[in-house]
Design a protein around this nucleic acid. Structure first.
Lengths: 192, 192
DNA sequence: CCCGCGTGAGACATGTATGTCTCATATGGG
DNA sequence: CCCATATGAGACATACATGTCTCACGCGGG
């Protein structure tokens, strides 16, 4: 009876394992597969049955991160309103994914050799397009390239998440600090 | 004749090894001790004679990074001029150290357990003091805390260095992009 | 010329994370 | 009630970086 594929009793749900792994690896990027398994409340054997290895797990987390980003981008409705309002929504929607993103961001530097997942290029393109729209509408400065503004946003997310986890910035100020610094730099001077 | 301590033939010079290691680890944070040795043009044995282990090497690199930062801070003369000019000088002086800083920044997250080197706190304090001076002089906004501005500067350095190494930003624009984005956010609106 | 010192090369042991396997168990469905 | 299936526990081999050691070589000084 292999026709069911999913349903049935299906003990561990992949989703929960991924969430636990994301939460743990966000804090300790070097956590062991054993620790990941414990964090998810399953045995290392079962973890390994679902993800062929640490590599596969990280790739799956990457997929998850990409999905969350694209969902956040959808929810932020980047084409509506003024560009700066869209940026605010973007930061708001991204906050919950900031931790995972930070992990993947540094983890990607270790994949150096291989080509990176095409999903990131799509996400980069959507965010860069938002900044470009803002430039064309006259809201944003044109001397800072959309590509750089995109990278800078990532960097601010990373340091923001880090600062919060270190207690140097209050969690409730996370969005405000990032948006205000980024927009203040991206908006033209004669801005409200 | 142990009274010389340094001079003599003293084959490998510690400085050169550190520089090579910094250059390599900046690109590939997971490089092997063997690769580090090869990059420095010495054998693993000799490398190990100078630095008791990978840990010791990273600590030494941390010391080097701290020294470079403090030298950059001195050279930037943070107390002179307007705060924004001081920030420009700061970014300029920091550029050459950006790669090493990026490596140490992510590496520090792995030390999570142990207390971090007091040097970083000193550096943080000096930079935060600059932002605070700018706030008190009325140049900078007061709704973004000095601590956050400091962290944000680190984040922008990291993403800037990364973007340059990935070819998304031209190396010659590195300083400009960072300074303009940061200052645009830190300066009050009615700014030149 | 000989000796000492630092180096390079490599063998060897170690620790650790990982991948793989087996087996007992429990749970749920037929 | 019995069986299938997935899980948990643990043993086991492997790969790899690391730490340690020995030994031969070369260079410079006495």
């Amino acid at each position: 009876m292999s026709h069911m594929g999913y349903g049935c009793l299906m003990a561990v749900d992949r989703e929960h394992v991924l969430r636990s792994a994301a939460a743990l690896l966000t804090r300790r990027a070097t956590a062991t597969m054993d620790e990941v398994a414990k964090a998810a409340g399953i045995s290392r054997a079962t973890l390994h049955r679902q993800f062929a290895g640490r590599d596969a797990l990280v790739r799956a987390l990457e997929e998850l991160g990409i999905q969350e980003c694209e969902a956040a981008l959808d929810a932020a409705r980047l084409d509506d309103d003024t560009a700066r309002e869209a940026v605010r929504r973007l930061v708001r929607e991204f906050e919950s994914a900031a931790g995972l993103l930070g992990f993947l961001y540094t983890e990607n530097q270790l994949f150096e050799g291989e080509e990176q997942n095409a999903g990131w290029a799509r996400i980069d393109a959507r965010i860069a397009a938002l900044f470009r729209r803002g430039q064309q509408s006259g809201e944003f400065r044109i001397d800072l390239t959309p590509a750089w503004l995109t990278e800078a946003l990532y960097g601010l997310f990373a340091s923001g998440a880090w600062a919060v986890s270190e207690g140097r910035v209050a969690a409730k100020d996370f969005q405000y600090m990032i948006v205000e610094l980024l927009l203040g730099g991206a908006l033209r001077r004669e801005e409200s």
